[in-house]
Design a protein around this nucleic acid. Structure first.
Lengths: 253, 253
DNA sequence: CGGGATGTTGACATACATCAAATGGGGTGG
DNA sequence: CCACCCCATTTGATGTATGTCAACATCCCG
């Protein structure tokens, strides 16, 4: 099941190594403990549901391959995508007090997920402080992403929202990106509309504008951002997580 | 459910008991362990900052008394309130990888907070599974609230947003509410506007409409919702967290 | 008792939604 | 390989929810 021979387990595609690549600061013993988790891999076709709202979640899923969306419906006409789920992300943490999922998770492309018992994962976290810290930071990052989305929807124009979203998709893939500049973008404009709380038609107009201005190249597969700085400026992204400022000047107190 | 909570130390006002009332399923030994935490209480006046964006957070604050907002600014003109912070909420969990706050937290009223070392809290959580579970559930609840906010901003009309927000404020206080129907509402319409991504003027129009329809009574101090069911229906709040459906029918699989 | 925040209302401006229709592309089946 | 169809993209014309500006009323708080 596990191939010990690979030194860098990052890209072997099993759920645990994909997740391990996402959680930072794991010690070797943390990783070792996680490798003992029992994982069931499963494949799900494009447009199929990974999790439906209300479903009780006993096992979390780690996305190994493909993209998914987390979304909620207001009624049959209106749905809102909460965020995109990329490889390494954990599916099934957004639950209510009873353990039922508060949102739908749907495969945007064909997906491979690894299922892990939530209890087992929590036990590993209790015994390995690095895993616990990793999961806490992961949750914090999810909260940050949700906040970014709130900012987009609450106070940005359509054009700014699009810039901000493209930048997020770009930045989330940078640590993994192989080909210079180009990142995956298996996303239809309808999907973007549901993400940004806009109509498809209006999304298209903003996409056209970005193209006319030569800032991006994108289709249903790939996204290239030609001028990330300009985009960040439009979207008021002061901090893009890579060129982090020292932040020591502003100490607490 | 609300009854047995009332028996313990919930209302003595110290940070730990206020927090303990918020975290569910704590055993007596969990509570005992938390009582050993070193807490420094502090008072902050209305409109003062509790935490500024970028500030490195070594000690989390537990809000004991008063209300606060978590917000982010796009520029000097535009700010977006992410959520309201009520007594029992933890301030300082929304941090980046470097431990710096990603948002401002400002006192909406005079506030009392209890400061606890983040490290110490994490140590207690590592040794008391109930505390760890409580904090995990707390984080999950924060994520749910963020998702509600995303839904409001992304796909609801101004009127629906207001109904949804009032209902959230109402529901978050129900477990504590003393006076029948009335809950605290120390919130100006300008604040509501910054929360809902609307202009003050437009918020006022929607408030006026709700009043005309006899659905609510509200001023800068109190909120009374006369017909919660109607409001929930308008805001498409299918699940308000109290009359939870069994949710066993929809098992995983 | 004043003065700066807050609330309220009307007139007008605009960003975005909606409707409609043409174009294009990628599977699928013949 | 073509024909077909469905889904996605693109563009224009028009409608509407919400923003902006302005004026006044009201409430706090010092």
């Amino acid at each position: 099941m596990t191939e010990h021979l690979r030194r860098n387990t990052r890209f072997d595609g099993t759920a645990i190594s994909v997740l391990g690549a996402r959680l930072h600061h794991l010690s070797e013993s943390d990783r070792e403990a996680m490798r003992h988790l029992n994982v069931v891999h499963r494949f799900v076709g494009r447009r199929r549901a990974l999790i439906a709202e209300g479903e009780v979640i006993g096992r979390v899923r780690i996305l190994c391959k493909g993209w998914a969306t987390r979304s909620r419906r207001l009624d049959n006409e209106r749905r809102q995508i909460l965020d995109f789920v990329l490889p390494g992300d954990i599916i099934g943490l957004h639950v209510d007090a009873a353990g039922a999922s508060i949102c739908d998770v749907d495969a945007l492309t064909a997906c491979e997920v690894g299922e892990v018992s939530l209890d087992a994962l929590e036990r590993v976290a209790m015994q390995n402080s690095g895993v616990a810290a990793g999961l806490r930071h992961y949750m914090a990052r999810q909260l940050t992403q949700a906040n970014d989305q709130i900012l987009r929807l609450g106070r940005m124009s359509a054009y700014e929202r699009l810039c901000s979203l493209l930048l997020e998709v770009y930045d989330r893939q940078r640590p993994l990106a192989m080909t210079a500049g180009a990142v995956d973008f298996p996303i239809t404009q309808t999907t973007v509309a549901d993400m940004l709380g806009l109509s498809v038609v209006h999304v298209n107009r903003q996409v056209m504008r970005l193209r006319r201005e030569g800032l991006v190249t994108l289709d249903r597969r790939q996204l290239v951002i030609h001028d990330p700085e300009k985009l960040a400026q439009v979207a008021c992204h002061r901090d893009r997580g890579f060129s982090r400022r020292p932040s020591l000047f502003m100490a607490a107190e």
